[in-house]
Design a protein around this nucleic acid. Structure first.
Lengths: 339, 339
DNA sequence: TTGAAAGCGCTAACAA
DNA sequence: TTGTTAGCGCTTTCAA
């Protein structure tokens, strides 16, 4: 084929003119073909083909008011945890013939706001968001304006917003209990800022468990705040842990990417895992079990999380529902050693 | 705050009425604030705030004709290779204040077509796509209609389309040479269908290298086609390799996710790596170096790939440019053993 | 079965 | 500086 110079997109009236019918008829061919006689329909379809006509979505939407598109904002698209969740969302949306616009806030509230605005401007049916801040007032406002809003991976702090979450306190507590049972009495926790709810909750879960087990958290726990929740953050955090005067014997990581960085750093420093330092991750991503030292991690039902979120977004009753899943500790050699 | 019942979104004329100005003035406040006197501007902004007015993107776009949004379609959002590429795209787009709509074709041409259509309907500035088929005619057509099109991770077969790619033949050839130098004379290749260009090219690169080294590809190479280019595919493919009568001594995988599945399967079967079976991956994703057996892999400049693609999409001259990056073999223990 | 026309919300040209 | 108005491309009455 020859590529023609880009020219104005054909519109419905171009089609109408070529097919010698009215625009209304073209629209009917598009939307209610049975109302059009076979012969004219044929003629119109031929014209559409001829002009390579693609209906203008903006115009359609402007007229119709709403569309079958939903938006999702996660903290980091390069984190397998979030892409697995996105996959769950997509799978559910596809059943309903909806499409997903996916964006990444990078844990930055301004980026989150920017995408939220973009989505709203484009009239999405609703948004699923992993909030970058504890504050969800802007999301309540959005809901007040008629958009569906579902909080992702975060229990709703208000009863006007639906949410789908995993019990982060329980997950972190399970990990802590496991470490204490193995005899660890001093634990480092590489965590993100507490403005991210998951981080705050996991920290609280650790605290709770330590107290419950009769340990003094102020003494048993060293929380190190890392700037980014990925391998680089894990590396930087681990360097700090290794420099600590009274070095902990175990490191708990806020997610598996962070744990990956931690393992890498420990290996480079010649610290054996788990005998020199036990390591626990969070998320149980696909590669966790295949690492040099298979990683003990807290598994979350990612796909289900996304699937359920999309389900709520599509709920015809627009009910407000809070769903909480339970995580599961998966024990591997990074805490128990070979065997 | 109290959540009010969802009602009709405020429009520009609602704002105008409340602020006692014309719609034109409201539009000016929004788009050319300096043309409006401070007092009226104040009044309009107050009204905007009052009504929680958000301009309707569809209407704006319908009027303006185009928007600062670009679309990208990759084969699989859960593959770190593609999310890293997406990250590169986003970073470049953000500089230009563009936003990205990301979608995943799952290697399915129909899904690709569906998203392409969605993007076009929504008037995106352009699309960056990793095509699911060798055929790019539909993309040329799209370009003929005035959309920017950049082929991602795939050299353009035509001179009307820009592309950003990595030399897949060279990457595969380097891996093959490495294996042959280590003494392997029978190599399994877990590959996807040749309808995916990367798969076809990597296969060709392997062939080339073997011939060049004086080996008979028909004897030295066993290509096994896997249905999905992920860990599950790698597992299934490896099971087939292990069942082969004349078992190869090395397995080359079309990507690292596939290699992950291969390593898992080999471990479960008690086959030591690399002494029982050498393994090579492709992409050199973040975890490749941290696996139980650190993975030899072909590194690609993912972030650059995306960054450059977005760059071409935004090019004011709309020039047609074909960019090819060179990959780099990263040798680790999955081929050389401990040491 | 088909056509005519109103109008979705916005921008931009022009007038006042 | 502000207001008026045409029109972007489409869907949807209502009439013919």
């Amino acid at each position: 084929m020859t590529t023609t110079a880009p020219r104005r997109r054909a519109s419905i009236s171009d089609v109408a003119r070529l097919a010698k019918v009215s625009v209304g008829t073209v629209s009917n061919v598009l939307n209610r073909p049975d109302r059009v006689s076979p012969t004219t329909r044929e003629r119109v379809l031929a014209a559409i083909d001829d002009l390579a006509f693609v209906p203008n979505g903006s115009a359609r939407q402007l007229r119709a008011g709403t569309i079958t598109t939903a938006g999702a904002i996660v903290l980091d698209v390069s984190n397998p945890f979030f892409t697995d969740v996105a996959r769950g969302i997509e799978d559910r949306l596809e059943e309903a013939d909806y499409t997903l616009m996916l964006a990444s806030s990078d844990e930055n509230p301004e980026r989150e706001a920017r995408y939220l605005r973009l989505f709203e401007e484009h009239g999405v049916q609703g948004v699923m968001v992993v909030p970058a801040t504890p504050d969800v007032e802007h999301l309540e406002t959005l809901r007040g304006r008629g958009l569906r809003v579902v909080l992702l991976d975060r229990p709703s702090p208000v009863d006007t917003l639906s949410s789908v979450a995993v019990d982060d306190r329980a997950g972190a507590a399970a990990a802590a209990r496991h470490l204490v049972e193995l005899g660890h009495e001093r634990i480092a926790f590489l965590n993100g800022p507490h403005t991210i709810r998951q981080c705050a909750d996991r920290s609280a879960g650790l605290h709770d468990a330590l107290v419950e087990l009769g340990l003094d958290p102020d003494r048993a726990l060293v929380e190190i705040t890392i700037p980014t929740l990925n391998a680089d953050g894990g590396q930087g955090g681990t360097e700090q842990v290794l420099a600590l005067a009274d070095r902990p014997t175990a490191t708990m990581c806020v997610n598996d990417l962070t744990a990956l960085g931690a393992l890498r750093t420990l290996r480079a420093a010649g610290v054996p895992v788990p005998s020199g330092m036990a390591v626990v991750g969070y998320d149980d991503v696909a590669f966790a079990g295949e690492l040099a030292t298979p990683l003990t991690s807290v598994r979350q039902p990612t796909h289900q999380l996304g699937h359920r979120a999309a389900d709520l977004l599509l709920d015809p009753d627009d009910a407000v529902v809070q769903v909480t899943f339970q995580p599961e500790l998966v024990v591997r050699e990074s805490t128990t050693g070979v065997g």
